[in-house]
Amino acid sequence: MAEKKKVKASKPVKKASPAKKRPAPVVDAPHAPSPPPPAPDVARPAREHAFVGIKGHPLKPATEVPALGKDERLRLDEILDRYGRSDANLLGILQDIQDRENWLPRNALENVATRLDVPITRIYRLATFFRSLSLEPRGKHVCVVCIGTTCHVRGAPKLVDRIELEMGIKAGETTKDMLFTLETVGCVGACAMGPLVVIDKKYHGNMTMDGLTRLVKGIKGTPVTAEEEE
């Protein structure tokens, strides 16, 4: 499973343009991709992240990461300026990048690390620690099911099961067509309206199985068009 992921993950990355190519520094050599992991043990499934970096962020030398485009760079500048380019505001910076880009692309993180002069590991530490940060691209529609206690006793687990079944993904995953992401959240603080589902930042309270199916089917009916994907 882990091997498969690795092959797949390295495919979609655009090749670095020849102009950007520089001789790989010698120091980078030890960081070259590790040999393929041993076959996963059946009894104890191998951790998905093993040897492939982090999901959505395959392990590879920094030189192979495509540089930021001009627009992306400007957007990043704006965010960094807002926080006075201080590493104490790292979390806020990452949150704002995610608000803009919908996820945390590796090249943006590399850029932040260089410009704030913080180790990239510190950024990854934050990005993997905090639940609201995503290291994987998220779909066009983000559906967040509240699984706080109140929503739980009022039947939120059933709702999650239902969406998982309907969309063929698990919580935390995105459909292959990048249309739909399913996430769960501890509590959104609207407990009286539970069970509650937030779709594209719009709150839907007192959710029923029927209502949810309608909402989800409504999204399914609007696949991502070619232009939007660009």
Partner: peptide, 10 residues
């Protein structure tokens, strides 16, 4: 206010 089920601070 991370306590799921409490929202008075909000």
């Amino acid at each position: 206010e991370g306590d799921p089920g409490a929202f008075m601070d909000r």
